[in-house]
Computed example of a mutant assay.
Amino acid sequence: MAEMVERSRRVASVRVLERRVDALAAAGEVSASRARQLRMVVGMWDLALGAWPKGAPRPGRAVASLFEESALRAFWGLAVAGRLRSRGDGTVRPLAAPTRRVVRDCLGILADVVVPGRDVWLPEVQQPRPKATVPPGQLAVLYRRLVDMASDAPVEGGGMSLSPEDRVRLLAMMAVVLDTGARSGELESMRLPDLAAGESRLLVRRVPQNGDHLAYEEVCELREGTGVAVRRWLRVRRRLVAPLEGAAPDALWVSLRPNQWQPEPGFPLKAQGIQKAYGRGAVALNGLMAGRSGWVPLPTTLEQVRRAVALPDGPGAAAPAPPVGA
């Protein structure tokens, strides 16, 4: 999502709107991610009022006037055209569909706060059709094949290759996802103390994609095969972080090789790096295993696997898992 330009908050209605968002965040009524999105939309309102389309009825000083249908339609037209954000190079691009959904949802939240009970106009945003997931009946087959891949030989296929370290990390990560349904951001937040002794349980910090739902923690049971895969990865991980100067990172998933940002391997993987690592590994494994009996081709995005895993209905109240070695 493009970075918003600096806002002046000169208009009284926008200043009031900003204070309402601050109050929601302070009271814990929205998650931190949703609060950031709401502040982004407040900034978009500030920009919109400085570039209001000619001929459109202009909102008054009262904050409620921002949620009149004529004002919302004018705001939406500017937002969709990309005129309420800046990419830093002066270019203007239409708002992407995911960002449109975020802005639309934020407008609804703000309307409920500013004009509670009023039926306000909100734009319709088409929901994309999700990519196909692994059929539930094939998840067990996929899991068995993954945890059985114990060879240290490089995995090659699809014009790509996986080193032994790549393979060990990928299989451990996949097994964890199949047991927990963790998103890439939730994988990024995993730490060594989140693993119970024997790698039988793992604390997952759930960050629901719907920003209306607050983050929560859940202790997930790991199957025996997942524990085996994770222990193999922990041995590789120890070798990677050992040469680092200072305190070694406690992130569960770390890099395997240097990159343009980090001169050494062993640094914590970010969500984007986790997604890329999975994608490369899935292509290589599918190329290698194509046509083999019982092999279920891996989806090419981690999200497709995650959505195939049944998740619990709501926040759990479990305490953090005991640390490794406890």
Rank of each mutant, 00 (worst) to 15 (best):
V230E: 03
V230Y: 03
R231H: 11
R231A: 15
R232I: 06
W233T: 04
W233D: 04
W233R: 05
W233V: 03
V236N: 06
V236W: 05
R237Y: 02
R238C: 08
R238L: 06
R239N: 14
R239G: 10
R239Y: 08
L240I: 12
L240R: 07
V241D: 09
V241R: 07
V241A: 06
V241I: 15
A242R: 12
P243C: 12
P243Y: 05
L244E: 11
L244D: 00
E245S: 15
E245H: 13
E245M: 09
G246M: 02
G246S: 04
G246D: 00
A248L: 04
A248Y: 06
P249I: 05
P249S: 03
P249N: 01
D250I: 01
D250T: 09
A251Q: 01
A251F: 01
A251Y: 06
L252S: 00
L252D: 09
L252F: 08
W253T: 14
W253K: 15
W253S: 05
L256G: 08
L256E: 01
L256M: 11
R257C: 03
P258H: 13
N259S: 15
N259Q: 05
W261N: 03
P263S: 09
E264A: 14
E264F: 11
P265Q: 04
G266Y: 11
L269N: 00
L269V: 06
L269R: 01
A271Q: 12
Q272G: 08
I274R: 02
I274Q: 00
I274N: 10
I274L: 15
Q275T: 09
Q275D: 10
K276S: 09
K276W: 07
A277F: 09
Y278A: 08
Y278R: 12
Y278T: 00
Y278M: 04
G279F: 01
G279Q: 13
R280S: 13
G281Q: 01
G281M: 02
G281R: 02
V283A: 14
V283K: 14
V283S: 08
A284I: 04
L285Q: 03
L285G: 02
L285E: 00
L285S: 14
N286W: 03
N286V: 04
N286R: 09
N286K: 07
N286I: 02
N286C: 02
G287N: 10
L288W: 15
L288Y: 10
L288F: 09
M289S: 10
A290S: 12
A290F: 10
A290P: 01
A290N: 03
A290Q: 12
R292S: 01
R292L: 14
S293I: 02
S293H: 14
